[in-house]
Structures are given as C-alpha cells and as structure tokens.
Design a protein around this nucleic acid. Structure first.
Length: 160
DNA sequence: GCCAACGTTGGC
DNA sequence: GCCAACGTTGGC
C-alpha cells in the first residue's frame, strides 16, 4: 500500500465536500500536470491512503484523510468545452489526463497547519516542505502519513 | 495583493 | 535543443 498527499483549494473542493458527496466518494478531476498525472496513472492503487491537504487557505494544512477506491481512468472534464479543465488535445479516443476516485475517511478535529508540519523533526523530509515544491500529488512515506495522522487526531490537550 | 519558484510554450 | 516570455501555484 502506498501513501499520498493530495492538494485541493477548499474553496474549490474541501474535505467537507468529499465527506458530503454521495457515498463519500468523488472523482479527483482537473489534474493538469504530467508528474501528478503519472503518479495517478502508474502508481496509485485501490486502498492507498491519502492526506487531504487544503492549499491556498488560511491557514493551509492537512484537513483529513481519504482512500483511493478507483484506479486511474480518463478525466472526462478534459473534453468538456464548458469545463475550466478543458484541454482540446484530450479526447475519449485518446485521453491525455486521468483521475482516480477517493472515498472520505476522516476529517481531523483540527486542521494540522503547514507551520505545524514544519515544526516537526520527524517530518523534515516531507516533499511538501521543500522549497518550491508545488506538485499537487505527492508520495509520502508510511512514517510521514502516520505522523501527520497522529497530529491530526490528538486531542490537543497539553500536559502539566 | 505580492512575488518566488516552477512548468509550459514557441521562436529560432 | 536552447531559452526568454509567459502563466500558474501557493505561501505569506
């Protein structure tokens, strides 16, 4: 099983939107970056687990978790001329872009802000924290996934 | 709103 | 194949 971080602007599609979708399941359309596409197409498998990251938010951070429930298939928004993701190079006969389906798993009681991720020594190698890293789909190690999960699910109570 | 960093495009 | 110009991402 693999682990991923997937970014979405909450104003476009948030963890709450995924939770409230039919069956808690939605397609991850609109990816228009080749490296991110290749991760979906070549490496994402059903059962893989995902950190759902809210980008361009105040504050940005990890909002919850999801699971891959359908492996890569053509992204039909690419041949919808009305869609903001329209790309005339992609056709049903010859799709350029793919998407996966995600199912909601959990919404953290409190967002784990980017600044908190940066403060954790065990996360210092996370791709997300690298300067200039903009990829919207990033692989995680199992340790990174579980470390963020622990931050997201702790009660926030401090000792003493 | 600013702007650094990155990806893409297209002329040559 | 190079690289300048442009568009996008996304934190701040």
């Amino acid at each position: 099983m693999r682990y991923w971080l997937m970014k979405s602007e909450p104003g476009e599609f948030s963890i709450e939107d995924l939770r409230d979708a039919e069956n808690g399941t939605a397609c991850w359309d609109g990816v228009r970056n080749y490296q991110a596409r290749n991760f979906m197409r070549d490496d994402m498998k059903s059962g893989d687990r995902v950190l759902f990251y809210h980008s361009n938010a105040a504050p940005p951070g990890v909002a919850g978790t999801a699971a891959v429930v359908r492996e890569a298939y053509p992204d039909n928004s690419a041949w919808d001329a009305e869609s903001p993701y329209f790309d005339r190079r992609s056709t049903p006969e010859n799709p350029v872009w793919v998407m996966v389906d995600l199912r909601f798993e959990s919404r953290f009681p409190r967002l784990v802000p980017l600044a908190r991720l940066r403060s954790r020594p065990e996360l210092k190698n996370m791709l997300l924290l690298r300067r200039g890293m903009r990829l919207s789909i990033q692989p995680l190690t199992e340790e990174e996934f579980h470390a963020v999960l622990a931050l997201g699910t702790d009660t926030g109570e401090s000792f003493r």
